[in-house]
Nucleic acid binder design. Structure first.
Length: 271
DNA sequence: AGACGTACCTGACCGC
DNA sequence: TGCGGTCAGGTACGTC
């Protein structure tokens, strides 16, 4: 799922429901997702007051009084909120917690998600090595980061160490918007192209956040409603359909890149 | 350094 | 209806 806009939407949904409250109870229906949960996971979280719910890249960081509770939604994760009387345990509800009369369920069919608890969130390796947020990185830094690698632009942008939060959908969208080939070596990008690319990345992410993210299969918001940005895809999932650039008569192509589908217009996005 | 394959999982969909 | 193949918003390995 869940790229930056979806994770941001989840955090915004959780924040008003969790901040300032105390986690009453946490139930583990299994003791591992992608990785094992740490041994004292349950004890660390239950009874803790929530200070903040924030996003970093595609991670959700719940700051508790004594610990940081870190979650990743993987490919198919979602978090849903219920009134206690309405909650029915569903298949793949792996971790469930209660606050007042509310129940929150972390549901993840594929179990590519992750959850852990640490003393300090900034000591958690994936966050420690993560690149800057797209909304915070400067044009100069973004350009420097891109020209530091010979990998294709698509691969470089998916690398969370180069820049945080981008995934397959929004990279395809931003590259199309920028008339840049996903196969172009990142170190050959011009400064003005990098500048435009960053502007387009921020624009596509901002619009997606405004739409509550993209709901394809599993992803839903905390209130169980769907995001709507999938209606505005320009290239993603549009193989064989007309390129939406009005001056272009080509169709959208799909090619495999690093084991993932890359959607692009072969005419508008030449190397 | 980086390309590439593999692994972790379930479920939806398609063609036969 | 069933079966096998393919694909899916991600990340972390190992090997060459």
């Amino acid at each position: 799922m869940p790229e930056l806009p979806e994770v941001e939407t989840v955090c915004r949904g959780l924040e008003p429901l969790m901040v300032g409250k105390t986690i009453k109870n946490i139930i583990l229906n299994r003791n591992r997702l992608r990785n094992d949960l740490p041994p004292m996971f349950k004890e660390c979280i239950s009874g803790q007051k929530v200070y903040s719910v924030k996003r970093r890249g595609k991670y959700i960081v719940v700051q508790l009084a004594d610990y940081a509770w870190i979650m990743h939604l993987g490919m198919s994760g979602k978090i849903s909120n219920f009134e206690k009387s309405q909650y029915i345990n569903e298949k793949h509800d792996h971790v469930v917690w209660e606050i007042d009369e509310m129940v929150f369920a972390f549901n993840d069919p594929r179990r590519f998600g992750d959850m852990t608890v640490v003393n300090n969130y900034y000591d958690y390796k994936p966050l420690k090595i993560m690149g800057p947020e797209p909304f915070e990185v400067t044009e100069e830094d973004f350009f420097e980061r891109l020209i530091s690698t010979k990998r294709p632009l698509k691969t470089a942008l998916l690398d969370q160490v180069i820049v945080a939060g981008l995934g397959n959908i929004y990279v395809c969208e931003a590259l199309w918007q920028s008339n840049l080939s996903p196969f172009k070596a990142a170190n050959t990008i011009l400064e003005k192209q990098a500048k435009m690319l960053l502007i387009n990345i921020k624009e596509v992410l901002a619009k997606a956040i405004e739409a509550g993210g993209s709901s394809l299969r599993d992803y839903k918001k905390v209130d169980n409603s769907k995001g709507s940005f999938q209606k505005y895809f320009q290239v993603y999932n549009r193989e064989g359909q007309k390129c939406l650039n009005k001056k272009c008569s080509s169709n959208v192509s799909r090619e495999n890149q690093g084991g993932r589908s890359t959607y692009f217009c072969p005419t508008c996005q030449k190397i």
